[in-house]
Design a protein around this nucleic acid. Structure first.
Lengths: 195, 195
DNA sequence: GTCTATAATTTGATAGAC
DNA sequence: GTCTATCAAATTATAGAC
């Protein structure tokens, strides 16, 4: 499914994403996003009948864009360490530089109370992110470093994603980017990451 | 201020905390918590006039309890590594074992849209947590290991808290505790932590 | 596609009796 | 302290005109 949004639908998704990232799924209304876009709430319902539809679309568009921005996790032109550095840069661009927490981190915190479609889309985001990171760690690059075991790659991905996520959270909440930057600088010192 | 809650007030805080941890600040109403406790919503307003009051009280009670459960961060009877292991155990008890994300992680994600009293209480939680962890890392214990510099302790605390937080988030969201447990097992391998 | 109008429900909060 | 009753506002969502 090539779900590429344009025009008003894309603007609605932009507004909804910004609002969700500021306060969560229950902190915005159809009137809010309608106002942001310059239309009426009934028109938002035309594009996304239910709030759950809107939420799911926001998450899936975000997922596709973020994963795409990472590029292939197994390009032999790059080492695992370079790929992880790229992941960290992608995190920085979409969160730190915007002063807003990752969309899926916000929604993930509310998952138990979210419409199932949204919660499921959310879990897919993190599974894909962990999968990308695991592949990035275990696929040899450059001068063919020894491969990591499947299990080591899994644990390494967990460590990398957890650290980036937690550090991003602290940076945005405490309005102090040194939390994120210090964590990124320390990433190469983690186990599992081959230069 | 010895804000120790008992009776109905404590039950209201319990209910509010559970509801917030499931879906955030905007996902529960006075009627919800009233129903949980077995009273009417007007009675909840008697104990906590505004929703912001209730939110602030929940965060501050949570903060006091969590920090207290950690004990002193500079007890010479323990090594930094032991203190960090204790921190991880406290995290596990209050989140993994309950299947619910940390209260302040949920609210932190919504911080930009929260009443200022609640947002401020939230930031105090994380500052105290980082402070405790920094002290735990830099204070020698047992056989007097060399002290960490102030800056190294700060970065170490950032790394430890970020990792625990991120791993807890993934475990709860994906309903797979191995994320948290693997991260805890890897904690001693981090820099900054002295046996 | 966007609008007006409106339905049905929920929300945070208050007044006042007991 | 808890209740009933109530309010004003906001919410998701729909019907139907243009």
């Amino acid at each position: 499914m090539s779900t590429e949004y344009t025009g008003k639908a894309a603007q609605i998704l932009d507004a909804a994403e910004n609002r969700i990232r500021a306060g969560g799924f229950n902190a915005f209304s159809f009137r809010d996003v309608a106002g942001d876009v310059g239309i009426k709430s009934a028109s938002v319902h035309y594009h996304f009948p239910q709030k759950a539809d809107l939420g799911q679309a926001v998450v899936e568009r975000y997922t596709a864009a973020f994963i795409a921005s990472l590029g292939p996790p197994d390009d032999p032109a790059h080492t695992p360490a370079q790929r992880i550095a790229h992941l960290a840069a992608a995190y920085r661009i979409s969160t730190i530089d915007r002063g807003a927490i990752c969309l899926c981190c916000v929604l993930g915190s509310e998952a138990a109370d979210l419409p199932v479609e949204v919660a499921d889309a959310l879990r897919r985001f993190f599974r894909r992110l962990l999968s990308w990171t695991g592949t990035a760690l275990k696929t040899p690059g450059g001068h063919a470093v020894p491969e990591l075991s499947e299990e080591a790659a899994r644990q390494g991905a967990n460590q990398v994603v957890s650290l980036l996520q937690g550090a991003m959270f602290l940076s945005i909440l405490l309005k102090d980017n040194t939390h994120f930057e210090a964590a990124v600088k320390r990433l190469p010192a983690l186990d599992f990451i081959h230069a």
